[in-house]
């Protein structure tokens, strides 16, 4: 693990333990623990800039779960990701053929989300009304693993592909981590700058995305909207202080088949986020903090983007038949 800062999981526990406190006080304590925000008392609805907060213009987002954000420009786009996956397939297959699995096809080892798949959650949980109505808090469009008999891969092929698993012997002649490991090492080389073992590619983008979200959670405009959302939920009979508390609940509360109670909770949740403008406020505030961080670290981000470009160029060379 390369990120030692407090995680959201810890943040939510903090909220839960301090339930008798006002939401603003709990959010403030969490923000202080994260070390990213001022210790000045939060003022719900306070004007932009009075706590050193960036100015924001809150505009309606037709699809808040997929709203574009400033840091997106520094990651792979979908076409680049496709090129990387195709290159990984080619490199893995070349290696598997080399170690004795002549008919191996890497595409048989995984399935991907369909072309129509889209995100339905944001940093404040479920925000998609259509998904709430259809699936409640569940993820729609996942492969059905209950249908048909489960595939079990040949242990020898698994060892060649992924390396030794659970104490099983390695396949003779296969590289460390198997052929999949070798392909990944070629396409995602370790960082040659920064801390040892730093992740390949987007380490800085990940760090800044996390920082922006931490700051957005403590922002007075967001905490004010959260208070309104909580009141909206309470009016509908659901007593919950923050979307993060609810988001945590989503994972373990709804375990059986989807019930009408879950659908009601999910649709009320999304409707309250729209009514109180929490969805749009979150997007605007998060984008503002990302913009601040991008401006501050532009040189480093540009450097990281250059490295990503090199990764994509190597992948394109593999596709053209020159990199395996």
């Amino acid at each position: 693990m390369y990120d030692h800062r407090p995680t959201t999981e810890r943040l939510i526990v903090l909220h839960a333990r301090r339930r008798p406190l006002l939401l603003t006080a709990a959010a403030l304590a969490a923000a202080a623990a994260l070390g990213g925000c001022t210790s000045e008392p939060a003022r719900p609805g306070g004007a932009a800039g009075d706590r050193g907060e960036p100015a924001v213009k809150i505009t309606p987002q037709p699809d808040p779960a997929n709203a574009p954000l400033p840091l997106d420009a520094y990651g792979f786009d979908t076409s680049q990701q496709k090129v990387l996956q195709q290159a990984q397939d080619i490199l893995t297959e070349a290696c598997m053929h080399r170690v004795g699995f002549a008919s191996f096809k890497n595409t048989s080892t995984y399935v991907t989300a369909g072309a129509g798949a889209r995100r339905t959650t944001s940093g404040i949980g479920l925000v998609d009304a259509e998904a709430a109505k259809k699936y409640g808090y569940r993820s729609g469009g996942l492969p059905d693993r209950e249908a048909g008999a489960a595939q079990k891969r040949d242990p020898s092929e698994t060892a060649a592909l992924f390396g030794s698993q659970d104490g099983a012997p390695a396949h003779p002649g296969a590289p460390e981590g198997g052929c999949a490991g070798e392909a990944a090492r070629k396409l995602y080389p370790r960082s040659t700058t920064g801390p040892a073992g730093a992740p390949a590619g987007n380490g800085l983008v990940d760090e800044l995305a996390q920082q922006a979200a931490d700051r957005a959670r403590g922002d007075s405009r967001v905490t004010a909207a959260v208070t309104e959302w909580s009141a909206c939920m309470r009016e509908a009979g659901f007593q919950v202080k923050t979307p993060w508390e609810l988001q945590q609940m989503e994972g373990t509360r709804w375990t059986g088949p989807v019930t009408s109670e879950e659908i009601t909770a999910a649709t009320t949740d999304v409707s309250c986020k729209q009514r109180t403008k929490l969805s749009d406020t979150w997007t605007a505030v998060l984008a503002a903090y990302q913009t601040q961080l991008v401006e501050k670290r532009k040189q480093d981000l540009d450097q990281e983007k250059k490295h990503l470009g090199e990764q994509v160029r190597f992948a394109e060379k593999v596709l053209a038949g020159g990199g395996a």
């Binding site: 954000l69 680049q80 007593q239 993060w244 509360r253």
Partner: peptide, 24 residues
Amino acid sequence: AARFTAVALSAATIALGTVTAAHA
């Protein structure tokens, strides 16, 4: 409301997301 709150307090250890970003 009471049921909803009780579950909220008991949940603790799931993996959950924190940020929206349209990365691929």
